[in-house]
Amino acid sequence: MKLCAVQCASVTGDIEANVARHAELVERAAPHDAELIFFPELSLTGYEPPLAKGLATHPEDPRLDVFQRLSVTHGMVIVVGLPLVTSGKPHIGMVVFQPHAGRLAYAKQRLHDDELPYFSAGERPLLIETREHRLALAICFESLQPDHAATAASLGADIYLASVAKLAPGMDEAYACYAAFAREHAMTILMANCVGPCDGAFGGGRSATWIDRGKRVNTLDATQEGILMLDTASLTSTVLALATPAA
């Protein structure tokens, strides 16, 4: 199975512009037979917690319909990040689009203390089932918690998709965590981080892939947008596309 982690810069607060950019990146991956593509945390709005309540929407938002069409056209699972409406504070969410199937939504279960004023936590894990794999979703802070990875493994996940919005100072620690989880649980891990504006600073990039035994097989740089593909059959990873450096 060919999986893609996208490293991209979001336009702060502009869902329509980000939808268009995401669609462009999906189209870039499609000719390479990508079967799943996923984006950084809150990729459709940018990671800006104070803005989340005003931007929060629901999985059936018509602005997202393009992803369902692209999923069907290319036979691809597409996973995007955005704040999701609840009766209280919004969730940090991911919406999953699958060919000829209903949309799925996942909400981040473990929030960082800084996120508690703006968001509420999700309550259950979500696994994507394919013919070859069971893929667990994880969002930033929770993806660095040993119990979250252990729960995914206990549910039969062999691939862990970490959608993050991390700044440069935290990346070395994140790399160490993902290598340890891949080694401990014999899971393949893909991490998609943002570049560009991120909560008053800039995303640290360095999206990467790990295979079992904790071996890191490919990495993007800290500033450029790009698409990192992993072939789970050969356990090889390639860079599909790089755009200009993020401003």
Rank of each mutant, 00 (worst) to 15 (best):
161 L>A: 02
161 L>Q: 03
166 K>V: 06
167 L>V: 11
168 A>Q: 12
168 A>P: 03
170 G>K: 04
171 M>A: 00
171 M>Y: 04
173 E>L: 10
173 E>C: 08
173 E>H: 11
174 A>L: 09
174 A>Y: 01
174 A>R: 02
175 Y>K: 15
175 Y>P: 06
176 A>T: 15
176 A>D: 15
178 Y>D: 10
178 Y>S: 07
179 A>N: 06
180 A>H: 14
181 F>R: 09
182 A>M: 07
186 A>K: 10
187 M>L: 06
188 T>M: 12
188 T>W: 07
189 I>T: 13
189 I>D: 12
191 M>N: 15
192 A>N: 01
192 A>H: 01
193 N>G: 00
193 N>M: 01
196 G>Y: 01
196 G>C: 02
198 C>M: 02
198 C>K: 00
199 D>T: 10
199 D>H: 12
200 G>P: 03
201 A>T: 05
202 F>T: 08
202 F>P: 00
203 G>N: 05
203 G>T: 12
203 G>C: 11
203 G>Q: 08
203 G>W: 10
204 G>Y: 07
207 S>G: 14
210 W>M: 05
210 W>G: 07
210 W>R: 09
211 I>W: 09
213 R>A: 14
213 R>Y: 15
214 G>K: 03
214 G>Y: 02
215 K>Y: 14
216 R>S: 11
216 R>L: 11
217 V>R: 10
217 V>H: 09
217 V>P: 06
218 N>T: 03
219 T>S: 01
219 T>W: 11
219 T>A: 00
220 L>T: 10
221 D>C: 03
222 A>T: 13
223 T>V: 14
224 Q>A: 02
225 E>R: 02
225 E>H: 00
225 E>D: 01
226 G>K: 04
226 G>R: 03
228 L>A: 04
229 M>Q: 14
229 M>I: 10
230 L>S: 08
231 D>Q: 12
232 T>Q: 01
232 T>R: 00
232 T>A: 00
233 A>M: 10
234 S>F: 06
234 S>H: 13
234 S>P: 02
234 S>D: 04
235 L>C: 08
235 L>N: 13
